[in-house]
Design a protein around this nucleic acid. Sequence first.
DNA 1: CTGTTAGCGCCTTCAT
DNA 2: ATGAAGGCGCTAACAG
Lengths: 347, 347
Amino acid sequence: MSTNRTNKKPATLADVARKSGVAAMTVSRAINNSGYVSPEVRKRVMAAARALQYRPNMLARQLKGHSLKAIGILLPDIANPFSTELVSGIREVLVPHGYTTFIATTDRSSEEERAALQSFVDHRIDGVIVATRGTRFGTESLQSLAKQNIPTVVVGRDSGVARIDSVMADHYQGAFDAVTHLISIGHRRIGFIGIAHEDRTSLRRYAGYAAALKQAGIAEKKEYIAGPPDAPAFATQEDGFQAMMQLLDLPKPPTAIFARNDFAAIGALRAAHTRGCRVPQEIAIAGFDNIPLAAFTTPPLTTVEQPIHEQGAQAARLLLDRLAGTAGRARTVVMHCRLVPRESTLK
Amino acid sequence: MSTNRTNKKPATLADVARKSGVAAMTVSRAINNSGYVSPEVRKRVMAAARALQYRPNMLARQLKGHSLKAIGILLPDIANPFSTELVSGIREVLVPHGYTTFIATTDRSSEEERAALQSFVDHRIDGVIVATRGTRFGTESLQSLAKQNIPTVVVGRDSGVARIDSVMADHYQGAFDAVTHLISIGHRRIGFIGIAHEDRTSLRRYAGYAAALKQAGIAEKKEYIAGPPDAPAFATQEDGFQAMMQLLDLPKPPTAIFARNDFAAIGALRAAHTRGCRVPQEIAIAGFDNIPLAAFTTPPLTTVEQPIHEQGAQAARLLLDRLAGTAGRARTVVMHCRLVPRESTLK
DNA sequence: CTGTTAGCGCCTTCAT
DNA sequence: ATGAAGGCGCTAACAG
């Protein structure tokens, strides 16, 4: 009755050593396949370890200067389909190299971002991949990481910090292509949904929209821009709905809409249907991101696909370079976006 | 030039002690507000700590038997809106108690689940909340957690293991209500989409469907059940689309569909539109989960809402009990689901 | 091949 | 109010 299987404290190296009648060091060697251990002793040790349910204490290991082989991923939230694909791409590269990944989310709050990053550092992760939206606060956090020499890669925007790599998709080009597509099928009155007019310049997707109009000799119209006034960081289906309603109320509403993202586009779609406005016959709608549901809306949504999985994989590769100490100054990788035409903008 | 700001190794307690001319112990006391430290010394220590960018090494702390105040959350994937809400509910409770949360995902693979759980344990998290789908493998992992005395709470299903609490929503009741609703507006031929006929019994949502039919004196029909044959764990929009196509090919197709989740329902919606079949006039469709986009489909989708945020919060509270050692035998909390009628099943 | 010693960064305990 | 010693679990470096 003395050996209780459900013991409080996990077994240690010393416990295993005692049980198998060797020194702790020998157990360490056997467990880690380092140095010489006679086959016979190794077998005995392994048996004892299994019996005791021994698991090495990684944290103690870390104290001796060993890496935990863990990397942290900082995400704005996890609802976004973007996040899954990104994580999947990251893990595809990192896991074969023996790294574990931990995810922390920030609920889009700078304060939480700071705390999460700190928490990663406290837990001595080896590196960080940051995919939150850029804020001044966020940049400060990145600087702090850089100062602590923690390998970091930013996804989705420029890091704005020396020694921190970034991976992003060319949203400008994607938006340009989408709007050029709308123009090519005959539209001249094209609205932009998902950001307030006063915040528009911070958005590369807007810049692409504006450039496409300009190239076609179409003047930008302030009243064709609609979005949530105080939340420039994102746009939801509700935002898209409101914005579309607003545009449809105009005396001369647009005949085509480019939405900042698919969620906003889906909100716009709903607004159009609510007003009895047929898509694409009376109004064409295009989105951005190609979320999985975009192919299943009514009608299926024209959108722009960005290579999310590949961005994750690329970020992971850059991080591996940094971890190996191979990398020099900051690199920026920009990936191409692809227009996915569907029925919502059918000619 | 001797003090380089971007030093390799993080500052330690000893570094701060040296810089402020006191013993390491005093620094520890100052940093942790434990024991007596004169205000003057405290100020000096804090200044040195800041200058050195000192951060306590939590991992070393843990070695002395201290908790890291971190809990792990195991998710099947992170695309699901379910996941965000759940995490938000969990954090709402845990963060005020000083806990950090880390998320790991399993890509729906048992092997990854095992590895992720192991990784949590290796990093000495204080407790785990598991929200993956039940598999035999998964249950084994849970048993292993229980054996190691790691406080654990399961969300979304019965843990099947002693000393492990669970929180779930009453999917049976939710499905029952949804199907009863379909019957009440006159439907008798009601299909179920999202699972293959041979896997149906494992699904509480199916049981609720069957019970509602039975209560109304309607016989179950094998050919009205359609779903992916080899992936009973989930159903996507693609699965819903395929299944709906199949049902619409029947000589006498159903007049109403209850889909296992909103993704499948959205796939079904698309299939109906593709076939020129009007919803809800020719066929009614209901889903399950009330994902944010469900209110924005065409037509807006009738669905069943489960209190996800609250399930997360509840799970966190149960976990806190376990962490405090307050809790005794396993508890199971079941929450009510609510029917959300929208236009896709309008009379 | 195996054992001993020492120390990673921190905190508990016991002095001072 | 502060300091010194010792040890948490592990492994590098050096014996045997």
